[in-house]
Simulated scan of single mutants.
Amino acid sequence: MTLEQANQIIGAAILKGGELGLRPLSVAVLDAGGHLLAFQRQDGASTLRPQLAIGKASGALGLGISSRGIAEMAAERPGFVGSLGAIAPHGMVPAAGGLIIVDGEQRPIGAVGVTGDSSDNDEACAAAAISAVGLMAQRA
């Protein structure tokens, strides 16, 4: 995952949010090691959005499933998921909007976290952005 790709993903996610008429988005892109590559917060986005976007992406990478999958896991095993926040270096947000980006062999090369609107809309923007730049999101 390059900085150029990360910035393209952010631009595509924000563009999709505009097309859908969503509230101001914040988008974080992490590399495969969980390090922040790029982040942008649209004008008017609330102050916790950077941490939320990073937490969605970081949690997905940390557990190897989308942040939607983490939310589903939290419903089944709330104690387990609740305990992860303390050990996850960038937090963990169990809500849709965080997707793992993979290469042709389904190996993680990074993750994107989007926040600002409903979780479903956040995830739709993340998925559209990954696709728009010619990359792939991890299959369920």
Score class of each variant (00 low, 15 high):
Gly44Ile: 03
Pro89Asp: 12
Ala86Pro: 01
Leu30Ser: 01
Gly69Cys: 11
Gln8Ile: 02
Val114Ile: 13
Ile65Phe: 00
Gly33Asp: 07
Ala53Ile: 08
Asp31Trp: 08
Ala38Ile: 04
Lys16His: 14
Ala45His: 02
Gln5Gly: 09
Ala75Pro: 01
Ala128Leu: 10
Glu105Ser: 11
Val27Trp: 07
Val27Ser: 10
Phe80Tyr: 12
Val114Ala: 14
Ala12Thr: 12
Ala71Glu: 13
Ala38Gln: 03
Ala32Ile: 11
Leu99Ala: 12
Met136Asp: 11
Asn121Phe: 06
Leu135Trp: 08
Ile101Val: 14
Ala57His: 04
Ile100Cys: 04
Val112His: 04
Ser67Gln: 01
Gly33Asn: 13
Val102Ile: 10
Gln138Arg: 15
Ile10Asp: 01
Gln138Ser: 08
Ser67Thr: 03
Gln42Asn: 08
Ala95Val: 05
Glu105Ile: 11
Glu76Arg: 14
Ala124Gln: 09
Pro24Leu: 15
Glu72Val: 02
His35Thr: 09
Met136His: 14
Gln8Val: 03
Leu15Asn: 14
Ala127Gln: 14
Gly64Cys: 06
Leu15Gly: 13
Leu37Asn: 01
Ile10Arg: 13
Gly134Ala: 13
Ala137His: 07
Ala53Gln: 02
Leu30Gln: 02
Ser46Thr: 13
Pro89Leu: 11
Gly82Gln: 02
Arg23Val: 00
Gly79His: 07
Ala32Tyr: 02
Arg49Asn: 04
Lys56Asn: 04
Arg23Ile: 00
Thr2Asn: 15
Ile14Pro: 08
Glu72Gly: 08
Leu15Glu: 13
Leu30Arg: 01
Thr2Met: 12
Leu37Ala: 00
Glu19Ser: 10
Arg77Phe: 04
Ile101Tyr: 03
Ser118Leu: 12
Gly44Ser: 06
Phe80Thr: 01
Gly110Pro: 04
Gln8Met: 10
Leu48Tyr: 09
Met92Asn: 02
Glu72Lys: 09
Ile65Trp: 03
Phe80Asn: 00
Arg139Asn: 12
Gly59Phe: 01
Ser119Trp: 09
Gly33Ser: 15
Gly21Lys: 11
Ala95Glu: 05
Ile70Ser: 02
Ser46Gln: 12
Pro89Arg: 13
Gly85Thr: 06
Gly91Ile: 02
Met73Tyr: 05
Ala129Trp: 06
Gly97Thr: 04
Ile10Tyr: 11
Gly59Tyr: 01
Asp122Ser: 08
Ala12Cys: 11
Arg68Met: 11
Val81Ile: 15
Leu3His: 07
Gly134Trp: 09
Pro50Asn: 10
Leu84Phe: 07
Val133Met: 11
Val112Asp: 02
Leu36Met: 15
Ile14Phe: 06
Val93Ile: 11
Gly85Gln: 08
Gly113Trp: 09
Val133Asp: 10
Ile14Thr: 07
Ala57Ile: 04
Asn7His: 15
Ala140Arg: 09
Gly59Cys: 06
Leu99Val: 15
Pro78Ala: 14
Ser83Gly: 14
Ile70Lys: 00
Leu30Ala: 00
Gly97Phe: 05
Gly11Tyr: 13
Gly110Ser: 08
Ala132Tyr: 10
Arg139Ser: 13
Asp117Lys: 03
Ser58His: 05
Glu105Phe: 07
Cys125Ile: 08
Thr2Ile: 10
Asp31Thr: 06
Val29Lys: 03
Ala53Tyr: 06
